[in-house]
Design a protein around this nucleic acid. Structure first.
Lengths: 244, 244
DNA sequence: GATACAGTGTGGTCTGACCACACAAGTATC
DNA sequence: GATACTTGTGTGGTCAGACCACACTGTATC
């Protein structure tokens, strides 16, 4: 039916069409690879490549074995694909770290603006928990920054916009290695951590006060100042490190 | 070295590490699949699945044959992966069309704001050419909207931020089918086209006048009003939530 | 010198065969 | 009869080998 030059693309289009038509939706299982191969008259390897793409894009989760859990399941959590895409693009220097950071500021400012302008039905329990956890003095910089990332992500989640959420997750994921690389450039970590804690509380307070302008401004300086201090945007050219 | 449960992930990590370390960069060729398979002690099919993922993510372009053009080449155009990712996520209902449109507004407002605030060194030749092309009365709605998309994309490109550019391309691509679906809901296409033309010129003029606020406002209404008229955001089975 | 042709290396695909795994059903044991 | 164990089955994961189509490369031919 679809004699695309590449067989696996035909499989992908087939699955995409089923997705669009609603025959397949979140929670459903894809047909077994062997069945799909027979149905589309292609080799199993071609089916596998298409499924692999879907998995990389975060659309399906594959599991071995038998029973209801096994097979390729359509998953509804879209953040995974965005993360690997952006991480690899940054790794390949297709995306400049500076551009990623700029995009992060744009998105995050709009997130807090929306949150501040919204009604009182927004749930900040998770965000508050993360801030409390960050108060501990026994955290390593790496642990602290991990919580930091989760705090910012929780704001994105609170906005309810999955697209922005996924993009934020991808952004954070893509520059994670650079953030870790920047830790040593902070002379006094205790002071830095305290500063970040204060800024976080300030952002959350501004949101709760429905002061959109203040929240946006605080987010902007919070992010851009931190990257300026670690000079992360400069060292985009650094090549180091093999993580094995 | 890397006995991940899945062999193809090991290959992906291997390639990612080489990307990060700079051993591989834009324009380079990946080793031949057979060589890579032998080097990593995996089957060729596992290598192929990893390469397929990279191709889907827009990092490499594969080509058959022999010579300098053949093989898997690391490509520097990151828009492809974002497009397929977002298109499929929308198809799978992982992303709601309403959220995609909202995100588009956020990004595009920030784009025109930045363009308006920038110096005069921004090149709008391409954008202007597209606007001129859209003046033709012989265009079908589909053709008109294709030019429309390219106009908005050219603004994103003019900003120079590849991340935002790629996201805009992905956004546009993901809702393309819905945009086409919305054409019949426009009662008088000639009037609609004229309206869009005027709005486009207005946006570009505001940018050139360095009037960031006006440009942003015009973009906001340009996009949100159009989708309101076609009621696209309604027919998307949106994830229920905030009324604003 | 220009053209035609075989050679070579590449990705693309298919087939068949295993393996590991997880569940389902049947069997043995108490 | 209830439980524990064993076997069966279907799934994805991987590998090996074999072709094919393709595009370039070098050589032979005119």
């Amino acid at each position: 039916m679809n004699d695309s030059p590449r067989a696996w693309e035909g499989v992908l289009h087939h699955l995409e069409a089923h997705l669009l038509s609603g025959e397949l939706s979140t929670g459903d299982h894809l047909p077994p690879e062997r069945a799909l191969a027979a149905e589309l008259s292609v080799g199993r390897s071609s089916v596998r490549e298409a499924v692999r793409v879907l998995e990389a894009l975060g659309l399906v989760r594959t599991q071995t074995g038998s029973g209801p859990q096994a097979g390729a399941t359509i998953i509804g959590a879209p953040s995974g694909g965005m993360s690997s895409l952006m991480r690899l693009q940054v790794a390949a220097k297709g995306f400049a770290v500076a551009d990623v950071v700029k995009t992060r500021i744009v998105l995050e400012c709009s997130i807090v603006t929306e949150l501040a302008d919204a009604g009182t039905d927004v749930d900040f329990v998770h965000a508050t928990q993360l801030l409390d956890a960050m108060d501990s003095d026994s955290l390593t910089p790496k642990e602290f920054l991990a919580l930091d990332a989760r705090f910012h992500l929780s704001l994105a989640d609170a906005s309810g916009n999955l697209v922005v959420s996924a993009m934020m997750a991808g952004i954070r994921n893509s520059i994670e290695s650079y953030v870790i690389l920047g830790i040593p450039t902070i002379a006094d970590w205790r002071t830095e951590a305290q500063r970040l804690r204060t800024e976080h509380r300030g952002i959350l307070t501004a949101i709760k006060d429905h002061n959109a302008a203040a929240a946006s401004a605080k987010v902007h300086s919070h992010i851009s100042d931190y990257y300026a201090r670690t000079r992360l945007t400069d060292q985009a050219e650094t090549t180091r490190q093999d993580t094995q």
